[in-house]
Design a protein around this nucleic acid. Structure first.
Length: 280
DNA sequence: CCCCAGTCCTGCGGGC
DNA sequence: TGCCCGCAGGACTGGG
């Protein structure tokens, strides 16, 4: 499931091919099953993107932004199984769209692939982009948020801290996997009420968030046992080998080597933690 | 403000 | 062996 590190890895992977390139065509792949959520229609998208130049490819929280010389911005939100690729996809069956590009007289393609099709692709004018994603729609990026701002935002909610970390308005980029890992490293119980966190706890969560997300980027993200997430070259990430609690229910805790990792459900999502390392 | 359940979707694995 | 069902969860929505 692409979270901040996975999306950052995707962006870095396609940036060399895309930035400065001209879009010859943007097409729906013929093998597409059901279209992923798309705005506007594929027909209008194709005509608006034809011939435009890609100025920048950026990450916005868990989204990929394609910024064009027209001022328009396309947003790909991978959600659970979406990928952007410069190499052959994991399977032809779930290819969704293709950017046909030309850069320095060399043609290449960038593909959007999505097995479950929960992802979305939208093209916005600069104004519409501001309405949809600007302002306070998303909180500060998890890698940029200042420690005191982060702490004061946590202090304002009575939700359990694990649930609060998943709130993209509070802090943007953390998802279900990294939330468990961050709280484990910070030695904070996932069911602790966010507003009741002590200052040192907030500080530890902030530090763990930064360290873990940066390390996960360095390892090119986490490819889980379902193998869905791949980098832009269709290669596995390797941060899954560094996980200490996620998807390790009933296993001995890798930190204390004494207790067992527990799985609980919070907000209909799995949380993994060690009750010995992470006291209430 | 917050919570909860439902929605989208496919592949996988447990159970029978 | 094969089929059914539950589960995985990011973001959003509607109702309480």
């Amino acid at each position: 499931m692409p979270e901040l590190p996975e999306v950052e890895t995707m962006v870095r992977g396609i940036r060399p091919a895309m930035e400065g390139a001209k879009i010859l065509e943007f097409v729906a792949c013929p093998c597409e099953k059901k279209p992923i959520s798309l705005k506007p229609s594929i027909k209008e998208l194709s005509s608006r993107l034809q011939g435009v130049k890609v100025q920048a490819v950026e990450r916005l929280a868990k989204r990929v932004l394609f910024k064009f010389n027209t001022g328009e911005i396309a947003v790909f939100e991978p959600r659970m199984t979406g990928l952007v690729l410069v190499a052959d996809p994991p399977s032809q069956a779930h290819l969704r769209f293709e950017f046909r590009l030309i850069k320095n007289r060399k043609k290449s393609s960038v593909w959007i692939w999505d097995r479950r099709g929960l992802g979305t692709f939208q093209l916005y004018s600069a104004e519409d982009f501001e309405v949809a994603l600007g302002g306070n729609v998303l909180g500060p990026d998890a890698l940029l948020i200042a420690e005191d701002v982060f702490a004061s935002r946590l202090k304002k909610t009575n939700r359990e801290v694990k649930v609060a970390l998943l709130d993209q308005k509070l802090v943007a980029g953390v998802g279900n996997l990294y939330a468990s890992e961050i709280l484990h490293e910070a030695k904070v119980h996932p069911q602790k009420t966010a507003a009741k966190l002590t200052k040192p706890q907030c500080k530890r969560i902030h530090a763990a968030m930064n360290r873990i997300l940066l390390e996960a980027i360095a390892y090119e993200g986490s490819t889980l046992s379902d193998g869905t997430y791949r980098n832009a070259l269709n290669k596995d990430g390797s941060y899954q080998n560094k996980h200490r609690v996620y998807a390790k229910g009933d296993e001995t805790c890798l930190t204390c080597h004494k207790s067992t990792v527990i799985r609980i459900v919070q907000a209909q999502r799995s949380t993994f933690f060690c009750a010995r390392c992470q006291k209430r």
